[in-house]
Amino acid sequence: MTQCWQCREPVQGPVCAGCGAIQPPPPHPDLFAILGMSPSFVIDRKAVDKAWRAASRKVHPDRFAGASAVQRRMALQWTAHLNRARKVIRDETQRAWYLATGSERPSEGANKQPDPAFLEEVFELNMLRAEDPEAAILRAGELQGTEQARLAALFAAQEKGGSLDAVPAILNRLNYLSTVISGGHE
């Protein structure tokens, strides 16, 4: 339990129940927790939006239009966290990465090369794409389906104590495959 910076009363959550002051947001909040959700790979997008709206209503800068500049600044930071949380959690790839690594998706350069066998597969897909784009996209789609199923299986196994170590590698492959499908353009 922390103290409200303004009235020194104990405070829980982003807004002090006593004096109504917004509290400084943590620099790296848990993205599920700030939406009031438990971490989970399986989500209901509508439920995420509902949680996001409810949380936003409490901390949006408009709620603090008449408050000091400091409080408006904090409200902006809180709301920016909420908007980021919604974005990450709604997106399957970003959500998986976040759950597996505890961080948001790193920049492209940080990705490791996938295993040689898979790289060969991608190379062949690109060759095929030049001759028969439809067949290539179909094949890439199949591979995508396989990887997605593996991803879901890993998260399901996690509940029974399974490891998520393989998640980044799968996400990396999915990234390669979506590049093939979009024709090399990101």
């Binding site: 709206r53 936003s56 209503r57 949006h60 408009d62 239009a65 008449g66």
Partner: peptide, 15 residues
Amino acid sequence: ILTGSSELSDDLLLM
């Protein structure tokens, strides 16, 4: 709404 004293202040938010 931004005065905080409007009827709508509590439940309306423009995002």
